[in-house]
Amino acid sequence: MEKTQNNKAWFLVLPVLVLVAFSAILPLMTVVNYAFNDTFGQNEFFWAGIDWFEEMVTSDRLHQALGRQVIFSLIILAIEVPLGIFIALNMPKKGFWASFCLVLMALPLLIPFNVVGTIWQIFGRVDIGLLGHTLAAMGVDYNYTNDPLDAWITVIVMDVWHWTSLVALLAYAGLQSIPQAYYQAARIDQATRWSVFRYIELPKMKGVLLIAVLLRFMDSFMIYTEPFVVTGGGPGNSTTFLSIDLAKMATGQFDLGPAAAFSIMYFLVILLISWVFYTVMTNLDREETR
């Protein structure tokens, strides 16, 4: 039977297309415009070609921010993924405590980013913060406003506190979907706890973990609000990640051309990494079934 073709249906997509055009595509085009032109205000633009891109690609400042960004993302992935899995494995599977733990785990996720930042900013203060003051009283030399290492630790611990729940909840959902028969078979086969994790739980969680890693990677790679509220990118530039640097450049120094070129490259890098990551993971999956 021939399928009826009715191209009029495309008009149904039109409203969405218009909305997206105004909310995303046009602003992005403005950024593109700034990236290839130089302007001194009054809506006067001078063609700059790829000068801004050249300047940004060779800029030490950007290299350093990128380096810090990559290290930050790798560290929080290395902590949050195993920790999330560990928490999910130890959460109760049913009953009152299961719901209780779910709510408890969901709490950090419900807190707005700048509130999380403020909480930790105060929590870590040496003069009045519970954490900072306690550490100082114990004789630990902790001060996130002076010491780059302390600032890094604070920012990382804050991100772990805020986002490990997401990994844990996803992993928990993956674990809950494993039929009881698998655990029973493993007991019959006299498998060790490690084997159960390695051959049953981990393979069954793979799909959700892939999503968790992807989400956490993207989110951490564009992190802005929380470290900005806590450290403002300091001390010095030690916690200036890519988006903080970008915001400084664009709205602090009004270097709109370089900032626009920077944004476009930043966007493309995230797109590229996510695409590579996703393709590699799904291909691995396909090869295994062969």
């Binding site: 028969a181 698998y182 029973q184 019959i188 393979p203 069954k204 295994e288």
Partner: peptide
């Protein structure tokens, strides 16, 4: 004791050989 269930349970990431060897390895 060995028990076979109504619905198949296999260790997905293992080969058929590794599956069969699993109880002996353990």
């Amino acid at each position: 004791i060995a028990q076979v269930f109504q619905f198949p349970v296999v260790y997905d990431t293992m080969t058929v050989r590794e599956n069969l060897a699993f109880p002996l390895r353990n």
